[in-house]
Design a protein around this nucleic acid. Structure first.
Lengths: 170, 170
DNA sequence: GGTGAAATTTAATTGAC
DNA sequence: GTCAATTAAATTTCACC
């Protein structure tokens, strides 16, 4: 395993809070030179600790106000690759986790409203040889990165829900 | 609700893939001027669609190779605020989702190994008036942002599992 | 491993149209 | 929305501790 010291963790923490922090900003915060900070970020990317940068999006503001986790169960004969494929084929699926034991997979979905959620679950059930599902509807969430909480409920009335069957925005 | 057009969605898709894409890079991709792209990004931040930028980290490379979801159950009398607080107090907890129905919360944890996981679960059980837990151990995961899958077991990048799902939701 | 400074390149920003 | 000028930042390259 790579040797990561306290300063590296500090760099990662600063970038987790704001992935667009400049080197000079971080250098001032940490108490190192700009060149030293850049060398550390470069190294963290090289050894694969930093795999990239991304944007944080408020999906509720995009009309995707509902968030859910669906547990999927498959027959013992279903290969993992097929489980992943059937889930990732559904555009509303944001993340797929394959699980040891029961259930076999946990998928994170974002949808416009509850009828849309119903459609997505139906599609998942039909897609593979799914033997059972259980869906956990998210009411609110908290993330360590930002330390901020969101309330899903207030996001449900953000606008006209598309008709069932309309394709989700991208 | 804010009006988000196709180009805005294109900008968001590009930034989800790489949050450090430059305006000129995106301008070329989209077919607009640099200034026009910047104006859109500024607006998306102003109206709160873009809430920030962050770094993607391979936690396995930091020695936090084990990922799990724990379902928590509480007595009906426990207020939601307390549920969130008891979970966020545990540093290994990355995300907390409050759930409609059963269970009451789903929490995403990252730990070094299985005995560490055991400790975290024990701490969660003691922290509040938790009446029950069920932990789903993650073997592998896939994220739409990157379209790449990771295998928790070997902590190495297995690359895309096939070619599904990469197409953005429409 | 780190510093500091100068030169270069590249990107971000602003204002006129 | 474009385009051009300006400002700011990232990057490279030194010599050095």
């Amino acid at each position: 395993m790579a040797e990561i010291d306290e300063i590296d963790h500090q760099v990662l923490r600063l970038l987790r809070e704001d992935g667009r922090r400049t080197f000079s900003e971080m250098a001032a915060e940490i108490g190192l030179s700009v060149a030293a900070v850049k060398r550390r970020v470069d190294r963290l990317r090289e050894i694969g600790v930093i795999t990239g940068f991304t944007v944080r999006v408020d999906y509720a503001k995009l009309g995707w106000g509902i968030e859910a986790f669906t547990e999927l169960r498959y027959p013992g004969t279903t290969p993992v690759a097929k489980i992943i494929r059937t889930a990732t084929d559904v555009p509303e699926v944001q993340e797929v986790f394959t699980i040891a034991g029961d259930p076999d997979a946990l998928i994170h979905v974002r949808v416009r409203d509850l009828s849309h959620l119903q459609q997505v679950i139906d599609r998942l059930r039909r897609a593979g040889d799914v033997t059972g599902t259980k869906t956990l509807l998210v009411l609110g969430s908290w993330t360590r990165d930002t330390g901020s909480a969101t309330d899903t409920r207030s996001a449900t009335d953000t606008g006209p829900a598309g008709e069932p069957g309309r394709r989700p925005p991208r």
